[in-house]
């Protein structure tokens, strides 16, 4: 028991300090999209090498004193003053940098999200490193070894683990420029949030069909997606890159009239609803993954569809009415992410 208390006490103290530090930091460097480094938000402290450098200088001083050798003393004084001027240099190398970053990024889980940070320099800076302060080990430093005058963009990778909306946390920017003796550091809060969609999971043919009247027993998965508009042919449109080959009007193409694709009218007045409850799985995450896949596929083929994820009437308004287009796709995915 005694041992545990001894061990737990520092932990609580540490937590207390951490919390206090967090609060202090939040006051000192509030969340903003734009930051400029200055004496308010730069922390500067000697690195381990800096400390060993200092003890080395003391060693040289002892050598000089013991030998009563003025030149060695002068040498040690020079090294000590260098320590101080390097501190100032590393501060000036680091300060005046400006950063700008959009606060939200979207992506699929288990993928990597990139948060672009725009770096605006008014002079040349060296050895500027970035990483997410709370990052797991998988996330690596991004480094600009030489940052010229002007604007640069770096993309800070973020490993999206699970679906949902995550606070990414602060970005640590640091530099050990000049001799590695000092570390200038700032933890900037861009209020970065990661909106992580469920990772799309491919639906195999026949597993799920939107409308019961679909008769296509095609094993091609694309066909499964095209379920929606197979009923009535409506028009021919010019081929747009990215459209499915399956819809190519081969007859017209063969005649040399050009590359057209066939477009079909959806079932009369029958709105297509993607329903969570109809997904062929018992696991809710897997269901969402299927939905995510379907949303993307349907949007790619510019279908109109709705999303019903809440079955109870109370939450009915959160369901998304049928629509199409990029914004609609994003809305649907966001709804899936936040479910």
């Amino acid at each position: 028991m005694a041992i545990t208390t001894i061990f737990s006490l520092p932990k609580s103290v540490k937590k207390f300090f951490d919390n206090n530090f967090e609060r202090w930091l939040a006051r000192r460097i509030p969340a903003r999209q734009e930051h400029q480094l200055n004496s308010r938000n730069i922390m500067i402290y000697p690195t381990r090498f800096g400390l060993s450098y200092l003890s080395f200088v003391i060693l040289v001083f002892l050598l000089g004193t013991n030998y009563q050798n003025n030149i060695i003393l002068l040498f040690s004084y020079l090294l000590v003053s260098l320590f101080i001027s390097v501190m100032l240099h590393s501060f000036y190398n680091f300060s005046q940098l400006r950063f700008y970053s959009m606060s939200q990024q979207q992506g699929f889980s288990e993928g990597t999200l990139y948060f672009p940070i725009q770096v605006i320099a008014k002079k040349t800076h060296f050895d500027i490193n970035f990483y997410f302060t709370n990052a797991l080990s998988g996330n690596q430093n991004q480094t600009i070894t030489q940052c010229h005058e002007g604007s640069h963009e770096i993309k800070l990778p973020y490993q999206a683990s699970s679906r949902g909306k995550h606070q990414v946390g602060r970005v640590t920017v640091f530099s050990e420029y000049s001799l590695g003796i000092f570390k200038s550091k700032s933890v900037l809060d861009f209020d970065h949030t990661a909106l992580v969609y469920p990772k799309p999971k491919r639906l195999v043919a026949g597993q799920y069909q939107l409308s019961s009247q679909s008769e296509e027993p095609n094993t091609d998965t694309r066909q499964t997606v095209n379920i929606a508009g197979t009923d009535d042919f409506s028009e021919l449109r010019s081929f747009v890159r990215g459209e499915s080959r399956a819809r190519t009007a081969w007859k017209q193409l063969a005649k040399g009239q050009g590359h057209f694709t066939k477009h079909y009218q959806e079932g009369q007045g029958q709105l297509q609803w993607l329903k969570l409850s109809e997904m062929p799985s018992n696991d809710i995450e897997e269901k969402l993954a299927y939905l995510s896949f379907l949303v993307i596929e349907l949007s790619a083929s510019n279908e109109t569809f709705g999303l019903e994820i809440y079955t109870d009437t109370a939450n009915n308004s959160a369901n998304i009415a049928p629509n199409s287009g990029a914004i609609h796709q994003q809305d649907c995915l966001t709804a899936l992410a936040l479910y």
Partner: peptide, 17 residues
Amino acid sequence: ILLAQSTILAIVLFLVF
């Protein structure tokens, strides 16, 4: 340049330390 800037302090240290 760095060392030249440091000399100010070094000389002062040499004289007064």
